[in-house]
Write a protein that binds this DNA or RNA. Sequence first.
DNA 1: ACAATTTGACCAGG
DNA 2: CCTGGTCAAATTGT
Length: 284
Amino acid sequence: MDINSNNKAIKLKVMDQLVQGHEMTTKVQQLLSQHGSASLSPAKDLVEKILGFINDTISTLDSFEPSSPSALVTTIEGSQNASCDNDGKLEDSGDSQKRLGPVKGKRGCYKRKKKSETWTVESTILEDTFSWRKYGQKQILNAKFPRSYFRCTHKYTQGCKATKQVQKLESEPRLFSITYIGNHTCNTNEVTPIIKPCIHHDVILMDSEELKSPSLTTSMKEEEENHHHGSSTESDMQLVWQEMLVFEEEHHPHHEAVYGCGGTSASINGFDSADLWSWQQYSV
DNA sequence: ACAATTTGACCAGG
DNA sequence: CCTGGTCAAATTGT
């Protein structure tokens, strides 16, 4: 237990340092992109490679769990479809369609994943090596742009549970907030199997009441614009991470990439590099 | 003809 | 009851 928590602390620390490195590199990339001169393109390539390496390192680190690695994930997957377990097809036997006649199918029951690994990225680029199928679009309250819902193409053929949500940012319409939910379990023989396109993945646990002060959870929930907590010392980051372990990032109104790790959120300005999967453009 | 997207209804959680 | 997430029929694209 003690050793385990110690290892976790070390892991967090290393992760934090990598995040900072990524952050700085991203800023460099941003600066480079502001200058259109062609002479800088080698530098841009280099920066992109560096980001790739950092992501890779983070993925490696991420897959290294000090101990009891699958505890969280197992919990998550085990409680995914609480509502109904008939393989997604169930006819609800009766009054499921109360509103309208024209609904002939059985829409009664579907899985709603409540807990899964999520991580959010803001980027202008919507492409990667996985194939996705759009399955919905919603107008979100207080949001100018609709949110689009994608699932893995192999959801039914291979049971891949990966989904993502894409939404334009109001503040920066060129940027998309992309939320990845769940890992790909499909066997597409394309490149590396599980690469997380961003820094941290985030496990949203609903029933983690033993963690830390619950007031933080609520304080973060409202839609805000101007509180940028700029004054967190790096040395305290480890603490901050633990403190923020309760946070569920839901939205992030400005042009910042929000990465969550166990509910932690670190913001990175102008994350602009391509993520590793290919998204299909949707137009509003 | 098949595959992907669009769109509105349905459903669960808060 | 409202909102966000999912389903599936209809439509569009390849």
